[in-house]
Amino acid sequence: MGTGQDPWGGTRAAFRATAELRREDFAMNYNQILQAGVAAIGTTLKVELDIQAVQGESLPAA
């Protein structure tokens, strides 16, 4: 997503990643059917990562 200065004078970089995993690709076929006939677990899993990193040689003081 890019880099920029933060309010404390540091340089930050922001990243975003998404992925969708299909359970059947990992041989995960177990599923429990609820009374209404609906599966308790979906067939796909969506993973979203939002990450910020600060450039520096040490951690900031708390």
Rank of each mutant, 00 (worst) to 15 (best):
G2S: 12
G2P: 03
T3L: 08
G4Q: 14
G4D: 06
G4M: 13
Q5T: 11
Q5Y: 10
D6C: 09
D6A: 12
P7M: 06
W8T: 07
W8P: 03
G9K: 04
G10P: 01
T11D: 00
R12E: 00
A13C: 10
F15Y: 15
F15K: 14
R16L: 10
R16D: 02
R16F: 04
A17V: 07
A17T: 09
T18S: 09
A19S: 15
A19C: 12
E20Q: 15
L21C: 11
L21M: 11
R22M: 09
R22L: 10
R22Y: 06
R23H: 02
M28Y: 04
Y30D: 02
N31G: 01
Q32D: 01
Q35M: 04
Q35F: 05
A36I: 05
G37H: 03
G37T: 08
V38Y: 04
A39F: 04
A39K: 11
A40L: 05
A40M: 09
T43E: 00
T43S: 06
T44A: 13
L45F: 09
K46R: 13
E48M: 06
E48G: 06
D50G: 15
D50H: 14
D50M: 10
D50F: 09
D50S: 15
I51V: 12
Q52S: 13
Q52I: 08
A53Y: 08
V54G: 05
Q55A: 15
Q55R: 13
Q55S: 14
G56D: 01
G56F: 02
G56V: 03
E57A: 11
L59M: 13
A62R: 14
A62Y: 14
A62P: 00
A62M: 13
